[in-house]
Each structure stands twice: as C-alpha cells, then as structure tokens.
Write a protein that binds this DNA or RNA. Structure first.
Lengths: 115, 115
DNA sequence: TCGAGGCATCGACAATCGTCAATGTACGCG
DNA sequence: CGCGTACATTGACGATTGTCGATGCCTCGA
C-alpha cells in the first residue's frame, strides 16, 4: 500500500558520501540506495533520458506515454517514483503536468560513485 | 473502441515540444538499469564501500559478514549479485574468496549520469 | 453547464526481491 | 582419514515491485 519510504531528504547537500570513499553508515547507504533503486528500472531510465532530451527540458505525460509502450497509469506511477526520489520535479500547468530533471541531482549521484 | 473517424489534428494538441534526440534504446536502458538495480540496496552499497575501504582493495566474506548484520548466506548472495552486475570480481585463494572492485566500473556508471 | 481530455490513484495480479536456516562443497590441518 | 573452517547453494517465506484496467479528480472549451 502506502509506500513506506517516507523519507525524502529532498536535497542531500552533503555531497556525497561516496561509495568508494569510506564506509557508508546505515543511513547514508539507505539514502543512496533509494536513489539508485529509482534508476534501477529500464522504463524509468528511458523516461529520464526522454525528458533530458527535450528542447525545453521538460515533458508532459502525454508525450512520454507515446514513446514508451506502457499504459498511462504506469507512466504516471514511474514518474511519481522519480519525483519522490528527488530526480524529477513536477509542475502542473493548465491541463498538463510537466516533468523536468532536478538540476544537479544526477551529477550528485555521479559524484558519489567516483570519489 | 478506437474511433474510426478521421481526426482533424487539433491544433491544441501540441502541448509540448517533441521528444527527440539521444534517447536510450531499450537495450541500453536495460543494461544500465541492471547495474543501478544492483546498487539499489543498502546492504550491497555497504558491501561495496567496505571493500573499497580496505587497504588491499579486497576482502573476504568472513570480514564482510562481521561488519554487516546479516547471515553469511545473505552476504554471499549479495556479493554474487554484485559480481554478476560487473561491479566486483571474485578470486578464490586457498580457503577464502576475495572480492574486489572492478576497476573503472563505478566511473563508467558515473559517466553515464553526467552526459 | 456539460463533455472531453490529461493525469493521478486504486485494486488486483504475477513476478521478483531480501532474508534466513539448513544443507552442500571444497580446502586445510591434525 | 576425519574434523573444522570458509563459502556457495537451496528451499522457503513475507514483502515489495511493475504492470494493467478501471475509476476519480481537475481543467479547459463549447
């Protein structure tokens, strides 16, 4: 039912508790894993790349729904997960919902892999 | 169900810019997602960080098993997943199995997040 | 005011996951 | 040889996941 992962740490400014830079605490591991888990699905990765590839930097569900061979409800579900993971933002404008990448979210994640 | 009537291309349908450009292919998305999924678990992230933090760059199950509050079988299971994902290597030496990071695996993943 | 389009949410389902205890396998040492 | 250690594998389980169809909620335009 209700997802249990309540936590959002919207912005962990603590740039990186890098995976390769010292032993991760329990909390750090959970926070990082939550974001990696959100990217651990092909459909969600394609959603991210579709949004990133748009000219305006955002896309509405109607477009994404056409590109991915998934039902509208499923696409909405995936987008919600990406928002909750702090990777996307949702902006309602008129009739449409526009999704855009959270600036720096990917880079922060990337930096957690290098250090 | 689908209406047969020829539609008129309503002008207002252009709600957003067309999604084009470098989108992930199905295979690319699956390959990337598999690796991210492997990192989408706190226990596995801690395993990675524990191994990365070792002086020699490798660790055996007995050490890791003590650091994570998990059964030996579970640790072995997680390590197997990380090996299968291409993030760790396994080397049997005598009585022990030593796990080490695959050089460059993390960086490659990190680079996939920046582009 | 009504109808239709865009989207989120719900309920259900099979599939997969994380975990454990128990068992199996290989090695090293008396 | 027989025993103990280190690890892998198995079988089972509850929990979570990805997906769908159906339904509900807004917003817009006629």
């Amino acid at each position: 039912m209700a997802t249990e992962l309540t936590v959002l740490e919207p912005v962990s400014t603590s740039c990186c508790s890098p995976v390769t830079g010292g032993v991760l605490s329990d909390a750090e591991a959970r926070s990082l894993a939550a974001r990696f888990k959100a990217m651990g699905d092909p459909s969600r990765l394609r959603l991210l790349s579709l949004i990133a590839a748009t000219e305006s930097g955002e896309a509405c569900v109607c477009d994404l729904n056409e590109s991915l061979d998934l039902s509208q409800g499923t696409v909405s579900h995936h987008l919600g997960i990406l928002v909750k993971a702090g990777l996307l933002t949702r902006t309602k404008r008129g009739q449409w919902s526009f999704y855009a990448l959270v600036p720096g979210a990917m880079s922060t994640l990337a930096r957690a892999l290098d250090a």
